[in-house]
Structure formats: structure tokens, C-alpha cells
């Protein structure tokens, strides 16, 4: 049973159980991103334990060029 998530503003379904698994599923390197779930930052050290729930709204950010 996949979960209905919102990732960076886009609806997406995933079979990932944890945020760490989701990050891996998206092909991202966990050490280069930060994750916010439902408005609360998820510390990187806890991504592997952070269980996803249906309806979770996630923001996954990284550093880009800027002034």
C-alpha cells in the first residue's frame, strides 16, 4: 500500500517506509539535503527512523548558487 505524499509541492506516491528510504528512492544523497516534514525539520541523524505517514508534506532542500 503506497502512501500519498506531497514532495516539494508535488503530489507523489511512494512505498518508502522511512524518510531515509524515500530520499534513497528519489536518488538523492542524504548528506547533501535537509528535510522538513509538515513544517518541522527532521534531523539528518533520525531520517532512518522517521516513519512516513499518509498525507505527509515534505520539503527537501539543498544549496544552490546565490548572492
Amino acid at each position: 500500500m503506497s502512501l500519498a505524499l506531497t514532495i516539494n509541492g508535488e503530489p507523489r506516491r511512494s512505498l518508502a517506509v522511512t524518510i531515509a528510504a524515500l530520499v534513497a528512492e528519489l536518488g538523492l544523497k542524504p548528506e547533501k539535503v535537509a528535510v522538513e516534514r509538515n513544517g518541522v525539520i527532521v534531523p539528518r541523524s533520525t531520517l532512518a527512523q522517521a516513519a512516513l505517514a499518509d498525507g505527509d508534506v515534505l520539503e527537501i532542500v539543498h544549496f544552490v548558487g546565490g548572492g
Binding site: 514532495i7 516539494n8 509541492g9 508535488e10 507523489r12 528519489l26 536518488g27 538523492l28 547533501k32 539535503v33 535537509a34 520539503e59 527537501i60 532542500v61 539543498h62 544549496f63 544552490v64 548558487g65 546565490g66 548572492g67
Partner: peptide
């Protein structure tokens, strides 16, 4: 200085500043 922005989920292999 660097900015913080959403990762492009549809293109995770795009080159990154780091």
C-alpha cells in the same frame, strides 16, 4: 554565499554546487 532551494526531484543527478 549560497541559497537554499528545493531539490529538483525529477532530476536528482543534476550537477550540484557542492
Amino acid at each position: 554565499t549560497v541559497a537554499v532551494r528545493r531539490v529538483n526531484v525529477s532530476d536528482p543527478n543534476a550537477p550540484m554546487l557542492t
